[in-house]
Amino acid sequence: MDNITATIQVVPLNHYILLSAIIFTIGVIGVLIRRNAIIIFMSVELMLNAVNLLLTAFSAYSGDASGQVFVFFIMALAAAEVAVGLAIIVMVYRNTNSVDINVLNRLKW
């Protein structure tokens, strides 16, 4: 365990923050500009993973394991979300023959 911590700490914390920020931004931009529901879905996963990375890094640097426990929770949750989300997307595809989110605009005023 100390090894891993030490290994992690080889890289300065700023780099982790920067990396996760970049990944997170990619995720956000992906969600914002893509219209394919599956891509958006993947972008969301990217954001989640960016956060996971950050949590792990902070956890290692501050010597507190609870951050990593959080990461497990998030992963479990992400898995569940993927299951439900993909199921919805499949259903959407069956109904509309498309996974373009702009087609899904019927839920409005």
């Binding site: 956000v28 969600v31 914002l32 219209r35 958006i40 989110i101 702009n102 899904l104 605009n105 019927r106 839920l107 409005k108 005023w109």
Partner: peptide, 17 residues
């Protein structure tokens, strides 16, 4: 206010961000 409810998912996400 209900005009904000466009039904466009992209817009919702944008608004969220």
């Amino acid at each position: 206010f209900r005009l904000l409810q466009t039904g466009n998912v992209g817009f919702y996400i944008f608004a969220m961000v």
